[in-house]
Amino acid sequence: MPYDRKLLALPLALTACAALAGCGGSAESATQAPRTAGAERTGAPSGAQANAQATGPGSGAIPAGPPRKVLPLAGRTLVIDPGHNPGNFRHTAEINKKVNIGTNRKECDTTGTSTNAGYTEAAFTLDVSHRLRDLLAAQGAKVVLVHDADRAFGPCIDERARIGNAAKADAVVSVHADGSAVGNRGFHVILPARVQEGGADTTKIVGPSRSLGEKLVARFGRATGTHPANYIGSGTGLDVRKDLGGLNLSTVPKVFIECGNMRDPKDAKLLTEAAWRQKAAQGIADGIGAYLKG
């Protein structure tokens, strides 16, 4: 829930021998010697022969290897923002301090939600983020994690936005799971609203963020076999909000994805399965890839 990836080169002597009908053979056998390539007829090496000679022992040249495969996300920088932090619940005073989100002030962070059995949103988001990082890195992307549970709490929502901005990310995805009522099922992607107020200006990122969100909805549903939320977004899987500091303060394309509802037993069953979380990570990776292809 938001709070805010050689030809053997025929010796030249053979040609000379044929012309002189010598070299130990009869004139007839010499003149009937096969004449294969035009280059051999003139005494000049063929292209294949020249290459073999140029790269042979003692030539000093290094044979050309197979062409290097270009990975699809090479040169791209992607930021993954795992929602919340497993340590937040031990630092309620710190995360309750308010920070500037451009339009107003809001709490630094929250603890997030959990399933009825106690599986926390923070644990879920970190697991999916690790899987997503590996998928994106395997495609050549530079991947930045906003945090890796390597700090006691947070980071605060304003700092999360700054990390993506500083990385000059091609895209930022904040990973979450919702905490809605039983019966509310499915995933949705939260897009930034057009905001120009105080320190917030989302004018330049509204369009590309929507494109990113639309690609995520399509690819996430395909990879996980789940549907857009039945309780928000009118079945589109998209929700636009202006109250999230992580979006308001972003200067690069950014969205939040709510992968499912942890408070619904059927969704919770999926969210707690490692195999499904891998599908979720794959769906997000596919969505990002589709967005970057344009």
Rank of each mutant, 00 (worst) to 15 (best):
R222M: 13
A181W: 10
S234N: 15
S174E: 00
L212M: 00
T251C: 01
A44Q: 02
V146Q: 03
Q49V: 14
G22W: 08
R35V: 11
A33E: 09
T251P: 02
Y119V: 14
G43M: 04
R133C: 00
A290Y: 05
G179S: 04
Q282G: 11
H227G: 07
K279Y: 00
G65V: 11
A37V: 07
N165F: 00
K97I: 12
I205L: 05
I95L: 11
A138S: 06
A285F: 05
A52P: 00
P2L: 10
G287F: 08
I163E: 04
D201S: 14
I205K: 09
G47D: 05
V189F: 07
T272S: 14
F187P: 09
K204I: 00
D81M: 10
T115C: 11
P34M: 08
R76W: 02
T224M: 13
P192E: 13
L132P: 01
A280Q: 09
D148R: 12
A181H: 14
A137W: 03
N100L: 04
G60C: 09
I101P: 07
N230I: 12
F220E: 11
S234W: 06
D150N: 15
P2S: 15
T15C: 05
P57C: 05
E159W: 05
G22V: 12
A13P: 00
D239S: 14
V70L: 00
V143G: 07
A50C: 01
L12I: 12
V146A: 02
T42Q: 08
G83P: 03
A285R: 00
